[in-house]
Design a protein around this nucleic acid. Structure first.
Lengths: 141, 141
DNA sequence: CTCCGTGCAAAAGGTTTGCACCTGG
DNA sequence: CCAGGTGCAAACCTTTTGCACGGAG
C-alpha cells in the first residue's frame, strides 16, 4: 500500500491523526477490497484477522478519515453506508440487487460536467455527484 | 403417465389494493409536494391535516405502493428513504447539503443509455439507475 | 367470509453519545 | 502532559415484525 499523505497546512480546526494499528489495517483492508465496505463488513474482516476493535471506535475512525478526505462515503444499500478510498479514481457503481455485489463503472463525464455547468450558471454550487446503476450481475442471471 | 394433480396453489398474484383514506391522502400529499418525502415527512403532514395514522401502517402502505409500482423509493439522505410518485417523468435530483432541499434535474440520457447498453452486452441486466448532484443551492449561498 | 387495512408494542439493526481510561508524540 | 485513540454501555432513530381486530368487497 503506497499512499502519499499530503503535507498538512496546519489548519487549527483539523485533527492531527496519529498512527494506529486500526487505521493501518483499515487502509490495508480497503485497498485490498474490490468493493466499498460497510462498517459491519470491516468489523467482520478485522475479526477474521484477529484484530479486535470496538464498533464505536471504528465508526469514529472512519468518520475522521472521511472528514480528513482520505475516505469517501458511498450509499449503496439504503440501510448502511459503505466506504472506499478517496484516492481511487473517480468512478461510479453497478450494484447487483440480487447478491449485493458492487462493481466499478467507468462513465464519460462530459454530459455530467455540462449539467453541472448549467447548474453553476444558475448560482448553484455543485460539490459532487453520484451515479449508480442497478440490476442483476452475470453471476446471478 | 403419472399425472401430477394440479394443486390449487395461488400463484403469487398481486394484492388488490382497496380504497382507503390513507392511500388517497398519500397520493394527494405526494402530488402536491415539490420534492420526495420521507415517512416522517408524510407523518408530519398527515398530522397537520388532522389525519391520524400509525407509523407502521404508513411504512406498510408505502411499501405496498412501491411494490405495485405506484411509488418510487429515492435515497437522498443516508439516514432515511424518501418517496415520490412513480408517474413522474424520469428525472434526477439536486440535493442541497446545507438545507436538505431537493430539486429535480433534467439530464440528457444518451450517455447513460450508452453505458447501459455496454453493460447489457456483458451479460448484465440493468433495471434502473440513479444520478444525484450535491452542493449548495441558491438560497443557501 | 376472506383478505386487506390498521393500531400498538416491541424488536431489530445501524449509528451516535457520554464517560472513563489509555497512549503516542 | 495533552490531544487523539479506545472500550463499554446506553441512547437514538429509522424500519420491521408479531399479534389482534375491524371493515371493505
Amino acid at each position: 500500500m503506497n499512499r502519499v499523505i499530503p503535507k498538512e497546512e496546519k489548519i487549527p480546526t483539523e485533527k492531527r491523526l496519529r498512527k494506529s494499528k486500526t487505521r493501518t489495517l483499515l487502509f490495508e483492508v480497503l485497498s485490498e477490497s474490490a468493493e466499498p465496505l460497510s462498517i459491519l463488513d470491516i468489523l467482520e474482516i478485522f475479526a477474521s484477522r484477529k484484530h479486535h476493535i470496538n464498533k464505536t471506535t471504528l465508526y469514529r475512525e472512519v468518520e475522521n478519515l472521511v472528514t480528513s478526505g482520505e475516505l469517501r462515503a458511498v450509499q449503496i444499500d439504503s440501510r448502511r453506508v459503505s466506504y472506499e478510498l478517496a484516492s481511487l479514481d473517480h468512478h461510479h457503481h453497478f450494484v447487483c440487487t440480487s447478491c449485493d455485489s458492487v462493481a466499478d463503472i467507468v462513465f464519460p463525464e462530459e454530459s455530467i460536467e455540462k449539467t453541472e455547468a448549467l447548474l453553476e450558471k444558475q448560482g448553484i454550487v455543485v460539490t459532487h455527484h453520484a451515479l449508480e446503476f442497478f440490476g442483476v450481475c452475470k453471476m446471478c442471471t
